[in-house]
């Protein structure tokens, strides 16, 4: 059990490091979205997210999700990776949470098919169980819309993150008037997550290299707690040192950042496509 736990943590840490490198590789590819100015990409993604959030038509959501897949393909993002990344967690969890809504207990409506039939309806306090528990058309429709809305939103957000270097995304936020101190905090957090991931990996490897027999669960938890303490201590010391390093190079509490963005023809094309989607939605909703 102990070794499993250590091995799993090691594997997850390595995976997190690998993912960050892998994700950055997509941002460096010469695909369609990678060529778009990050400011344009950020604003158009926001516009598409608003359309996705406000639409109640499954066909529109499916079309937008399909559009996201096409964009992923044109941006040289592996479709297998992209679909897995989008579907494995968020929509699946949303689906589980929303699943009761397909039944007539939660969403009354026209039955699609009957799941179970009782001799008579039952009432338990405030809860009423009908004689026939059915899956309703309205329920399925509602859950499908919810799941597809989450899937399409997550797809757009994932595409934005996968095809834009983190620092360029931050700079786009900066240009769009996000407070500079927020940008600095985000940038530094991203920078030091990697350092701490490597520290965590080192801690687990050091433990594994000296482990002869499995530890009991309680001992394992104690070890984890002590390492968390060590990590907090390290993080505190590092933050002091980093602050000194910043002060040494002129930091007085007011960050100054630099942007080097230029708008090209491809940005114009992407703005036109996004505007067309928004206008079509407004006209046909």
């Amino acid at each position: 059990m102990g070794n499993d736990f250590v091995a799993k943590t090691l594997a997850e840490t390595a995976k997190a490091i690998e993912y960050s490198v892998f994700a950055n590789q997509y941002a460096e590819k010469k695909g369609f979205l990678q060529r778009i100015d990050p400011r344009v990409k950020l604003l158009t993604t926001l516009a598409l997210l608003i359309v996705i959030g406000l639409t109640n038509r499954l066909s529109v959501l499916l079309a937008l999700y399909g559009g996201a897949l096409v964009l992923a393909a044109f941006s040289r993002v592996s479709l297998g990776f992209f679909i897995k990344r989008v579907w494995v967690f968020i929509p699946l969890f949303t689906g589980i949470v929303a699943l009761p809504a397909v039944f007539n207990i939660v969403t009354p409506g026209k039955p699609l098919f009957t799941v179970i039939s009782f001799m008579s309806p039952h009432t338990f306090g405030p809860f009423h169980i009908p004689q026939h528990i059915t899956i309703t058309i309205q329920g399925v429709s509602g859950v499908s819309i919810l799941v597809m809305r989450v899937a399409a939103s997550v797809s757009m957000a994932v595409l934005l993150v996968l095809t834009t270097q983190w620092i360029r995304l931050l700079k786009a936020l900066y240009v769009l008037k996000t407070p500079e101190v927020v940008i600095m905090i985000l940038a530094m957090t991203y920078r030091y997550i990697h350092l701490f991931l490597r520290t965590v990996e080192g801690m687990f490897l050091a433990k594994k290299s000296r482990e002869i027999s499995d530890l009991k669960m309680k001992e394992e938890h104690g070890w984890i707690a002590s390492r968390l303490g060590v990590l907090v201590g390290k993080s505190y010391r590092l933050s002091n040192e980093v602050h000194l390093a910043m002060t040494s190079r002129g930091w007085t509490g007011n960050p100054t950042l630099m942007d080097d963005f230029t708008i090209n023809r491809i940005d114009g094309l992407w703005i036109v496509i996004t505007l067309a989607v928004v206008i079509l939605w407004i006209v046909f909703r």
Partner: peptide
Amino acid sequence: DPDVQLFLPTVWDEVAFAPLQM
């Protein structure tokens, strides 16, 4: 320790930090 000194996400930003603050 360079990990203390290099606190920004890219080499360019790091090297530009001091002149920008100045």
